[in-house]
Design a binder for these strands. Structure first.
Length: 742
DNA sequence: ATAGGGTTAG
């Protein structure tokens, strides 16, 4: 909108309607009144550029801006955090109003605080001629909220001498207490409490609530209870605070008990009470009580409130009941970013990563507010989908919006690593000031599954040098690194030192890693011995690892034991049948082999279709075995034929994961059309000759394709990276990073 | 005019 001149004809009629009918007086409008009303209207709509224009016109027309207009303008600038607009309006005020601005200064002060400029705020505060309690509260809370508590306290002492109304101003204390809660400064809190008592505000309900809250959230539950119990009337706020305190102290039963007491005393419940108590039910894994509380919220008509609906969604997600979660979500009348983040992470938790991404894109296109939780889930989804494009885009996007925090940072390390870009993962890690346990773990796991054990273990050592303690997941990464590199002795030593040296109690997963280490190294008896002697019931992974080793090291006797246990635990996993078939077949025991084939057929089991894909210029190209659908199929196959001349000896090739589903061993000679070969060949002909090729595959790489990829990397000089269902293989000049050890 | 509570993630 451009106003050529200050013509009131251009102001919509409804604007002027607003000012006359309410006043009974004759329609004598103050000069400039309409202009000021228009200014306020623009401001409330957040149209700050038009405000600026309009102010100029008012100046030219000699119309002054009313104090009420200034108030609204400053409020708008604060709300929108528009510091430069705020400054120019402040300038305008100083330029045009010569007399003392008095109470308006509080709004200016508030504006600078809201815009995050403590420097400007302080300057205004010091230059103020007249300071009242409100002025002090504003400036003190600004420092306190920023965590600059010592300055807030200094101001507090300074105030003692200059303001007399302190006895009647509980807001001072409430203001000071809130940030203490946030930063958990218990000792300071106690001092303020004594101040409160000395100033006779000990029985003030609002102050009491704030103090009980402060004690509860600083973790001093006894103190909180003392204050809480002595409060003559406790409102929902006080009860909520106590429940939060118990929850943070992991005393969920106490929190629930308090809730029951609250209900019995007939305290009116509001939406915030439901937020915390639903979280408690989720933590207690108490579906029944949660459902009852859900029903209670419906009766009160609160379930459509975002503060109730959102934790309800989360509650049902925790129980894996996604249908109920969605139903709860749909009841929310005005979902906010938290609601969306619950539904997005819920989708991630049930493996619906595409759906998460879809919702995310939709929210972005609609301009809905996003938060760091949403980005963390999206990084997780991109990791699972290996979607580097979207992941990197979301990364840049999150930075622009200032929505990257420690959670997102470590999720990003994992995302880049799983998308095949260990180099980016490292860069993301290296950019951290002080990586915590999870970030270190993410980079260790990254190097481990890319087969770089030396680096992974060196990160583990550096982590300890930095004084960061490893957790259970860290050791999974460490042991995986050992496993992928054949570090048998080291692996066992790490397992043995976990409890004593690091205080991390090993779980069955850690033992499984070591079973895997032994099995891969051909120490099959040791592996079986460990399975038998470990302080846990062996699980699927224990036997799978052993079976894998029996296959690589051709031991049908132990393989039989592993398979027997595996079939009991997981009769529908086709991999067991296939490996056993191959194992017997390769030893020439055809009858036993046939037995497993037959069993598989009888149980009507079908193998997941082998599939590989490669992304070129942002487009995904997907291949299945023997696929001829691709427009460049002819070129792909001729490339493969050229590359395969050295593979005549494929005769004795065995049945692989990929072959089995399509049928029979007679496809011996057809190994050349395995999906990953198609993807590699396509990568070769469709990317620049110096670019690395990154192929993803849903199943484990077979031996022949692994050899093939090595060969191709030697002949063409290309770097080829293949991610199979297990790990990453980096092929360079005829060698693989896994040292044929996978 | 100033002031109190909750829910989401690696």
């Amino acid at each position: 909108m451009t106003l050529k001149s200050l013509s009131f004809d251009q102001i919509p009629s409804w604007v002027s309607l607003k000012c006359s009918p309410s006043s009974r007086k004759a329609p004598q409008i103050q000069p400039g009144h309409v202009a000021n009303v228009h200014l306020v209207s623009l401001s409330k709509q957040g149209k700050l550029r038009e405000v600026d224009e309009f102010l100029k016109h008012m100046d030219e027309a000699g119309i002054s801006v009313s104090p009420r207009s200034y108030k609204t303008l400053f409020e708008t600038c604060g709300r929108l955090q528009a510091l430069s607009d705020g400054k120019s309006i402040h300038d305008h005020l100083r330029r045009t109003v010569k007399e003392p601005t008095g109470l308006l200064d509080n709004y200016v002060l508030r504006m600078y605080c809201d815009c995050g400029s403590l420097v400007d705020a302080r300057k205004v505060f010091e230059e103020m001629l007249e300071r009242n309690v409100v002025s002090w509260v504003i400036i003190m809370s600004a420092y306190a909220e920023e965590g600059i508590l010592d300055e807030a306290i200094r101001l507090f002492s300074r105030m003692q001498g200059s303001v007399t109304e302190i006895r009647s101003s509980p807001s001072i204390y409430i203001t000071l207490l809130r940030p203490l809660t946030k930063f958990s400064f218990l000792e300071l809190g106690k001092q303020i409490h004594s101040h409160v008592i000395r100033n006779g505000l000990g029985s003030n309900a609002l102050v009491g609530t704030a103090i009980a809250n402060m004690y509860a959230k600083c973790g001093w539950l006894e103190g909180a209870e003392l204050v809480f119990d002595r409060m003559p009337e406790k409102n929902a706020v006080a009860w909520t605070g106590m429940m939060v305190g118990y929850t943070q102290a992991e005393k969920l039963d106490n929190a629930l008990g308090l809730f029951v007491k609250m209900v019995n005393q007939g305290i009116e419940m509001d939406e915030f009470v439901f937020s915390i108590i639903l979280k408690v039910c989720g933590g207690l894994e108490d579906l029944n009580v949660g459902r009852q509380i859900h029903g209670c919220s419906v009766k009160l008509g609160l379930d459509s409130d975002v503060s109730v609906g959102t934790p309800l969604v989360d509650f049902y997600v925790k129980f894996g009941n996604f249908t109920s979660a969605c139903r709860a979500f749909e009841r929310i009348s005005e979902p906010n970013d938290v609601s969306w983040s619950c539904i997005i992470s819920g989708n991630c938790q049930i493996g619906e990563f595409e759906e998460s991404v879809k919702i995310f894109k939709n929210l972005k296109s609609k301009g809905v507010v996003l938060n760091s939780f949403i980005y963390t889930s999206i990084f997780q989804a991109c990791a699972a989908l290996s979607d580097l494009n979207l992941g990197a885009q979301a990364h840049a996007d999150a930075i622009k919006r200032g929505l990257v925090n420690v959670y997102g940072e470590s999720a990003m390390i994992t995302m880049y690593s799983r998308c095949g870009r260990l180099d980016y993962a490292y860069r993301a890690f290296a950019s951290l000031d002080r990586p915590d346990t999870v970030a270190w773990t993410a980079i260790i796991c990254g190097y481990a599954c890319h087969g770089n054990a030396t680096e992974a273990l060196s990160f583990f050592n550096r982590m300890q040098d930095c004084g960061v303690r490893p957790n259970a997941v860290t050791f999974i990464g460490v042991l995986t690194a050992c496993s992928h590199s054949g570090l048998v002795r080291e692996g066992k030593q790490y397992l043995d030192s976990m409890r004593g040296e690091y205080g991390v109690v090993p779980t069955v997963d850690h033992y499984d890693c070591v079973v895997d280490i032994y099995s891969r190294a051909g120490l099959l008896e040791e592996a079986l011995e460990l399975i038998k002697s470990m302080p846990f019931e062996p699980d699927v992974m224990s036997w799978k690892s052993l079976l894998g080793g029996c296959w690589t090291h051709q031991n049908p006797e132990l393989g039989k034991i592993a398979a027997k246990n595996l079939l009991q635990l997981e009769p529908d996993d086709t991999a067991t049948y296939i490996v056993m078939f191959n194992l017997y077949a390769s030893c020439g025991k055809w009858e036993e082999a046939a037995h497993f084939r037959r069993m598989m057929a009888e149980r009507n089991l079908r193998k997941e279709i082998g599939c590989s894909w490669v992304t070129v210029k942002g487009r995904l190209h997907r291949f299945t075995v023997g696929d001829r659908h691709h427009p460049l199929a002819e070129q792909i196959y001729s490339t493969l034929r050229e590359l395969t001349t050295s593979y005549e000896n494929a005769d004795n090739a065995l049945l692989t994961d990929e072959d089995v589903w399509c049928g029979l061993p007679e496809r011996k000679e057809q190994l050349l059309d395995h999906s990953e070969r198609l993807a590699i060949a396509f990568g070769l002909i469709s990317t620049p000759s110096n670019a690395p090729i990154l192929v993803f595959k849903n199943l484990r790489a077979c031996k022949d394709c692994h050899d093939f990829a090595k060969q191709v990397s030697r002949v063409t000089g290309r770097e080829i990276v293949v991610r199979d269902s297990n790990r990453f293989h980096h092929f360079r000049l005829g060698e693989c990073s896994c040292n044929d050890y996978w």
